[in-house]
């Protein structure tokens, strides 16, 4: 029985369970902010190494998105442009040397998406950073192409002079390293542009500042202890890109801030160890991949303290 009817016509009521408010967060928003932040170092790479870099990116993008589409179709899942394939493609491209043949770019991008991500069940399920998985595979499969690095050329030139990377030689002027005027992979070069991109991510709350700080800090400290030049080790190679864009990946790094700090320190130690003691000049990619593998273990034991919890050790909760 109605006492009074509010406004004659009433639409049928929708039933849903609380909370009835949703924040403005979305996966797409996160991914496109990361994409935006990544475009800075990418355009830096175009500036330093020429337009061929754009071709590499286009190849990676098309392959990545297409691979994802195929995988989703095979798994009978819905394909969405959620931006994650775009981020993976840009990140993967940035790990490559400036004159990588396009077919290698395509193979790597396909591996990154199909094997690095979709095989595990798609976004959110993968254990390893897809871009780094792709980079590791092409690096190991086609090693010849990953020893030739060209020196930065005048803008818009396509040909370059082959040279060694600073890490292979062991020296370069700090200023050149900082702004990116050195030989190396596309995203390894300009610390400045990566820093700006990283600050965007921190300011938008997408990544925690503790991760790059502890990553870079532990590299600096350990290299200092081992008698190396810490500033050189920070600025040379892929450390900046790895610290801001890869060690901060949601999916493949620990959940808690404390866990993320452990991850960052572990990766930092591994970077120095690989650089100094392994038969490779650069180790950021492998350091992060190795820590990716440790992430489930970190998450198992590092947990926030629940409200009102009376014991001490969180890992011991049964």
């Amino acid at each position: 029985m109605k006492s009074e009817s509010p406004t004659g016509h009433q639409p049928p009521l929708v039933l849903s369970s609380a909370p009835h408010l949703k924040g403005r967060t979305s996966i797409e928003r996160d991914m496109y902010i990361v994409t935006g932040a990544l475009l800075l170092p990418f355009f830096g790479a175009v500036y330093f190494f020429g337009l061929y870099v754009l071709l590499m990116l286009v190849t990676a993008l098309i392959t990545a998105v297409f691979s994802e589409y195929i995988c989703k179709m095979m798994r009978k899942k819905v394909f969405r442009m959620d931006g994650s394939a775009v981020v993976t493609a840009i990140l993967f491209t940035l790990t490559l040397p400036p004159r990588t043949p396009l077919w290698i770019v395509a193979v790597g991008a396909f591996f990154a998406i199909a094997i690095g991500k979709e095989v595990f069940g798609g976004l959110g399920q993968n254990i390893f950073n897809p871009a780094l998985a792709g980079r590791a595979v092409v690096g190991v499969s086609f090693p010849v192409h990953f020893t030739e690095y060209i020196a930065p050329t005048a803008p818009w030139l396509v040909d370059g002079v082959t040279t060694a990377t600073p890490l292979a030689v062991g020296a370069a002027p700090y200023w050149n390293l900082f702004i990116g005027n050195v030989a190396g992979s596309l995203g390894e070069t300009s610390a400045l542009l990566i820093l700006i991109g990283g600050i965007i991510l921190i300011a938008t709350g997408l990544i925690k500042w503790q991760v790059p700080l502890f990553f870079i800090g532990s590299v600096a400290l350990l290299s200092l202890l081992l008698g190396q030049d810490p500033l050189f080790h920070i600025l040379a190679g892929g450390l900046m890109l790895g610290a801001f864009f890869m060690a901060t990946d949601y999916v493949t790094t620990p959940l808690t801030t404390k866990g993320k700090i452990i991850f960052a320190i572990g990766a930092g130690i591994l970077v120095v160890l690989i650089r100094l003691f392994a038969h490779m000049p650069e180790g950021v990619a492998y350091a992060i991949l190795l820590m990716n593998a440790v992430t489930p273990l970190i998450d198992r034991y590092i947990r926030p303290r629940p409200y009102g919890y009376q014991g001490r050790k969180m890992g011991a909760i049964r």
Binding site: T25, G121, G124, Q125, Y250, V251, L255, T256, P304, Y307
Partner: peptide
Amino acid sequence: RNCVRCARCITVCPMGLMPL
């Protein structure tokens, strides 16, 4: 959608839990 492990739920949980 699928969880992307962004850990926002952990960050905001006033009870220090891991909702994901």
